[in-house]
């Protein structure tokens, strides 16, 4: 597809684009673009420190992403992933570099996919970056970018950061992180363990709770999970679109996970660790793997105190 045709296609798509999938429907609002780039290809550099773009830029939407990465495409579809472009870059005598640029629809979901599998975090490029041998990823505004080298050499690493820097510059504005992060108490928080998500499949990736959606998570719920030192206890904070669903989710959780708990919603489970749950308006707070009853209660209490700091807009 020519570049001009591709841009035209975007214009035809119009103001609202509805992306449907088997388990999630995400409405993408493209009216508030600010300085958003309408054609992702404009963000890709043609060259970097000897690497030059090779072949056509590939484009994948929510359906065709499987053609590029098979089942792993589902990871992006757990968020409001909209489309991606892929550019391969070559430099004679050096490993190939692949640049993947994802439009995640919102900065919150760009942050979410960034947190999905990060092992480390640097403050730049972008609004946060993570590097491991052969792979540099960062997020900025609604975009998530990954630069992969077939094999990392000092040269590929330098080029990856150069490419990332160029893309970073072209994305003019930053975007907000999810407001729900505010519910996490900072004391003893392992920052790298913070993950933002919507669906129970994401939750099960980070903490396998059940084979079914016992917390009634959906594309409109916002959730964050994090671990606390020194016992690596988990805190999960979920905001539902309304109080009715939050209540139903709490009942479902009680029945499926802690049926023995009384109205305190506290239980010591088979591994001797404690579970605590708290329904608070549209929020559910869960402490898991806590070593003592007191530590579970303290974690919930500390999170509850922070809920007032979260804006009351619907997620």
């Amino acid at each position: 597809m020519s570049k001009r045709l591709c841009i035209l296609q975007y214009l035809i798509i119009g103001v609202l684009t509805t992306i449907a999938s088997a388990d999630v429907t995400v409405v993408v609002d493209s009216t508030n673009k600010d300085s958003m780039i309408t054609d992702l290809r404009q963000l890709l550099p043609d060259e970097s420190l000897g690497w030059t773009a090779q072949g056509e830029i590939k484009f994948y939407d929510r359906e065709s992403i499987f053609d590029y990465m098979n089942g792993a495409g589902e990871v992006y579809r757990m968020y409001a992933y909209r489309e991606m472009v892929v550019q391969r870059m070559a430099n004679e005598g050096q490993p190939e570099i692949t640049v993947e640029l994802f439009d995640m629809s919102t900065s919150e979901d760009a942050f979410g996919i960034f947190t999905h599998s990060r092992l480390s975090e640097d403050t730049s490029p972008g609004q946060g970056a993570t590097h491991q041998p052969g792979l540099l990823c960062f997020w900025k505004n609604r975009y998530f970018v990954c630069i992969t080298a077939m094999r990392e050499t000092p040269e590929t690493k330098k080029a990856a950061y150069d490419i990332a820097g160029k893309i970073d510059k072209l994305i003019l504005n930053t975007g907000p992180k999810p407001a729900i992060l505010e519910c996490l108490p900072l004391d003893r928080l392992d920052q790298l363990s913070v993950r933002y998500f919507h669906l129970y499949t994401s939750l099960n990736y980070h903490y396998y709770l059940a084979d079914q959606n016992i917390l009634k998570l959906n594309e409109k719920t916002e959730a964050v999970i994090a671990q606390y030192e020194p016992h690596r206890s988990f805190l999960i904070c979920i905001r539902y679109p309304d109080e009715k669903l939050a209540k139903e989710a709490m009942s479902s959780f009680r029945e499926a996970y802690i049926p023995e708990a009384d109205s305190s919603d506290l239980a010591q489970i088979e591994d001797d660790k404690w579970v605590a749950a708290k329904l608070e308006s549209t929020f559910i707070l869960l402490a898991l793997d806590a070593p003592t009853q007191d530590s579970a209660i303290s974690l919930i209490r500390a999170a509850k105190e922070r809920l007032a700091d979260i804006d009351n807009e619907e997620p």
Binding site: Y207, L209, A210, D211, Q212, I214, A256, Y257, I269, E270
Partner: peptide, 12 residues
């Protein structure tokens, strides 16, 4: 929920 979920506690 159609059937009883299998939870982490079942694994434990």
């Amino acid at each position: 929920m159609e059937k009883k979920p299998i939870t982490r506690r079942d694994f434990i």
